[in-house]
Each structure stands twice: as structure tokens, then as C-alpha cells.
Nucleic acid binder design. Structure first.
Lengths: 130, 130, 130, 130
DNA sequence: GTGGTCTAGACCACG
DNA sequence: GTGGTCTAGACCACA
């Protein structure tokens, strides 16, 4: 699992880290119980501030993607997926609204769009046994 | 066209405005050549500062969604959008990556996801003659 | 001499009018002593405010491209061209500086650039006996 | 790199800043990756408001002349500029039309004009390895 | 009246 | 410390 940060992106670094870890879980590159590098370790690895890594981990913990164990460190936690509430779908729908609108207006067809979704799902299902 | 802003959101107000206008165009609520309220008008309507609205309009103008007409003010501009370059699809793919990963992990099935897309496309195509 | 205004341009209308008249003179479409439509006439012709046309004419007069005659109206005046002072070349150089820099950086070659100049000069010399 | 602003000019300050930075890049005074002063720094240096500098930087970022690096601040970005599309040449042609017409009418010869271009190109190529 | 620009002061997220 | 955002009040060019 190698993080690829874009320091010139408008996405904050801490969020890039968190995002890539989530995608890593989906792809199956990070599995249940797997240990993430310590805050210090990752910070020095990728040459950024400790606070930034810490914020990424805190967010991931808050969202339930990792648990922070006093002794074992930061562990991947994928077992919370059973909370498929409608609430999440609503949030998802809202968060995608503008992207879909823009895609529609730019001339991206529905089929192109769904094909994109399917490709990602295939990518994720390939690595994970869902 | 009524704007619904969340002043407490972590999404900047100017972006909420721009987003809702884009969605409004997609839904067909805002049509080619339609006139938007002046920056001062909209600002006073929704109780925010003029410059915030101005920033939203400037961004929309920059992205080609509106034009500034010297006699009529700010007008919706939907033409010339069919520049479906692969570049845009790439950006779209990247911007959706995390959302799709999260949805996948939360247990949202591919069919549920594509159904969501189809609903939005139906909503947009319904109001617009694309 | 037909004016083509772009109401959506970021160039003020009065300046578009003045610019097109100057180009018209250079192309030979407007010749020494030729009469321009009255302020009222042009304003109603192109559907804009009288003040706007008035401002265009005033600017042209100020720059010496027209003279405003009490009885004959607004007349083209090309005879002032003998003031080829270095001052003008300096102003020209400054006004072009950014355009040339951008063109250079965008990869426009010197030959492409000078070819563009030559084409325009040919266009102007063709209609005018300079 | 010293900025020379004319606060009395009809050219907005933020545009003067942006223009001089572009010219600075062309001249080779500003090179790839070079760091620009922070908005507050430059603002206090030249005695203007922070937001004016910010607008200049934002425009430059939008146009791709600089990037905002999350650790290093605002950096000059000269790569990826060789997108010599015909579109740009068209815009250039239009933006020069009036200047060329005026120069022609003022008696500036084609050779004088192209000499001016060549001088600028030499100035730019001298500092930059294009 | 419009949008465009500038100033000033403030808070926040980020690193 | 940085850039990003928001507010507030002002002047100007334009139409």
C-alpha cells in the first residue's frame, strides 16, 4: 500500500491519505485487522507533518474504517459495513448530485456513467470477497 | 428557482450557490438565456454578502455556465457544452473514486448505485430536451 | 460598414465601437472625410444607449480619428498619421508585452507571430493606399 | 523580480501583477518551481491589500501559470504550456487587431512592427531555454 | 441600476 | 505561518 500524495491538489493532504486508505480497503489491498504504519512512521515516510497523518487517522476512526488500539496501533476495520441505512444513500445521492448534473450537461451519457461505476465495482469486488 | 443554502455546511456558500445553479440547469429549471438575479438582489434575497454571490457567478462564468451580458446581466448559457473530452471523464472518474469505494464498503450494491444514477439522469432528461 | 457588437464580451461596448471604426479606417472601408451616422442614428441602429455611442465618438475624437463638425456631423480624419513619434512605439511595445509573452510561453513561434502581423498589414494595405 | 505597479493606471492592479509575473516567466526571471511571496508578504511589500494579490494569484493559478503547493506556497509552473491550439492563435489575432490597425495608421511600418516582435522574442528566448 | 475593483478586518482549515 | 472564505463598505466604469 503506497500512498500517492499530490501536494498541489486542492484536496487537503489529510483527506488524500484517508481517501486512499478507504479505496485501499475497497480494493482489498488493506484487509481486516491489518496494521497501518504509526503516525510518526507514515509522516516521516511521506515527508509531511505528524499532525496531518494524525488528522487522517482520526477521521478514519471517526468514520469507523479503523480502530485505534493502544498496543497494536491503527488497525483496519471493515466489519461495520452492515449499517446500510437509507440515510447513507441519501447522503451519497446529495454528494453526487452536482457531479451527475455536470456530467449530464457535458454530454456524458448515462451508459458511459454507469459503465464507469461498474468498472470501479469490478475493481473492488475483484480484490474483496463481497 | 429557489436556493437552499446551508450556512453551517463545510461547503463554501459560493460553491453551494454555483452547484445549485448547475443542478438547476440540468433539471431544466434554468434554461438557455434565462436571467439570474443581480448579485445584489440575490445577496439580499438570501441574506448574505454581495461578494459571495459575485464569486459564485464569477466561477460559473469562468466555467462557461453563464455569461455576463452587458445589457441583460447574468444569463444562463447551456450551449457549447458538448465538448465531451476524455479529460473530463478522467476527472469525473477520480472525483467519484472515494464515493464509490465508500458506497461499496457500506454495502450499497452496484445495482442500487446505477439505479441512483439512472434516476438522476431521468430527472434531468425530463426537464431538458437533451 | 457594419458594426458587430458582442454584448457578452468583457470589452465595453463603446470601446468595441471605437475599435471597429479604427479597424475600418485601416481596412480602407472608412475613408478621409466620410461621415459616420449620428449618435442617435447609430444608437437606434444597433439598439444601444445613445450615451454609449457618444462615448465612443468622444474617444475617437480625443484620439484624433474623427473630427466632430457642427453641421456635417462626425467625419473620419486620417490625416494625423504623421505623428510617428517614438512615444507611440513605446506605448505599443508596452501594450503588446503581455500578449507576446503569453504567445511565446504557449508555444507560438516567432514566425507564426510575425506571419500574423504580416497578414493584417496586407489586409490593411490592400484597402488603403499607404 | 521587482514589481512595478501604476496604481493610477486604468489596468486593475491585480492584472498588472499577473501580467508582470507572466512576463517574468517569459523573460526567465521566474523559473519552474520558483516560489512567489505569500499574498500577505507581497501585499505588504507593495503596499496594497492582501485580497488584490490573492486575486492575481488565483487568476494565475486558474490559467495554469502557478500552482498552489500545500507545503511550499505559490510556485511558478511553466510546464504543460505547449498546447498550441489554433484557438489560442485566434484569440491572439483578435486581441491584436486594433493594436495593429492603430500602428498601421500611425505610420509604423510592418518591418518596425515585426522588429519589435523579434526583439521581445529574443529577450524571452535569451533567458529561457525554449 | 449593473458588474468590477479595491480596501479592511475577521475567522477558519491546513500543515 | 499559509491560503480560503466571508463580511462590510466604498468607488468606478458602464449602459
Amino acid at each position: 500500500m503506497l500512498l500517492q500524495l499530490e501536494l498541489e491538489s486542492n484536496i487537503p493532504i489529510y483527506k488524500q491519505i484517508a481517501n486512499q486508505i478507504i479505496v485501499g480497503i475497497a480494493k482489498g489491498e488493506l484487509t481486516e485487522g491489518e496494521e497501518l504504519p504509526s503516525v510518526r512512521q507514515m509522516a516521516s515516510d511521506i515527508g509531511i507533518n505528524m499532525h496531518t497523518v494524525n488528522k487522517a487517522y482520526s477521521n478514519l476512526k471517526q468514520a469507523g474504517w479503523v480502530i485505534i488500539h493502544r498496543k497494536k496501533g491503527v488497525l483496519i476495520c471493515t466489519s461495520l459495513k452492515s449499517q446500510v441505512d437509507n440515510h447513507f444513500v441519501e447522503i451519497l445521492r446529495d454528494s453526487l448530485e452536482v457531479s451527475i448534473a455536470e456530467a449530464f450537461l457535458k454530454g456524458v451519457t448515462k451508459d458511459e456513467f454507469t459503465k464507469l461505476i461498474e468498472e470501479k465495482y469490478a475493481e473492488y469486488r475483484g480484490g474483496n470477497s463481497q
